[in-house]
Amino acid sequence: MQADTLKLQATTMTPSEPRPATTVDFDEFFRTYRAMAVRWATALVGNRAVAEELAQDAMEAVRPKLPGLDNPAGYLRRTVVNRANSWHRWHARSQRRELRSAAGQPTAYTQTTNEMLGALASLPYQQRAAVALRYWADWTDEQIADALGCAPATVRVLLHRAMATLKKEISE
């Protein structure tokens, strides 16, 4: 039943991603994808300001390669995911300590949002990436698999595990 639900989501949330012109112009690419890159990064790091930095950095990484890329959006997706992974790894330890010290203190978000952000943060990076990119950023399983460097079947496993963990975290 759960797998069916996940499959339904995958079908109904297929993105309508614009495709750049054959002659790739960076300005056009930037205009088309910049906001998406920020959204993707937000899903991955849970912080808008950091997401903007990561998205900008990823855009700049894509720029010199743009003329030779068959799938610039795919390259950008993978770049954002990789850079967010680096950020996540470097910040994991300090974040845990800060969250610990900030427990019970008011934050900028609602309690339910904080609860969900905490649950997402508790997931291994690949699971977090899979679930946030799938259900919030509207990536397909294939796009997530490409960005994470795994098979689409693995993405479905990651989604299943992530959803199970999130349910447990949220219900506790």
Binding site: T5, R48, M116, L120, M163
Partner: peptide, 19 residues
């Protein structure tokens, strides 16, 4: 799952809307 996904979408919407 649907409720969980809705809550996650709401949370990330809130973060994304910040600034």
């Amino acid at each position: 799952d649907d409720e969980l996904i809705r809550r996650m979408q709401h949370a990330l919407d809130e973060v994304h809307a910040a600034d």
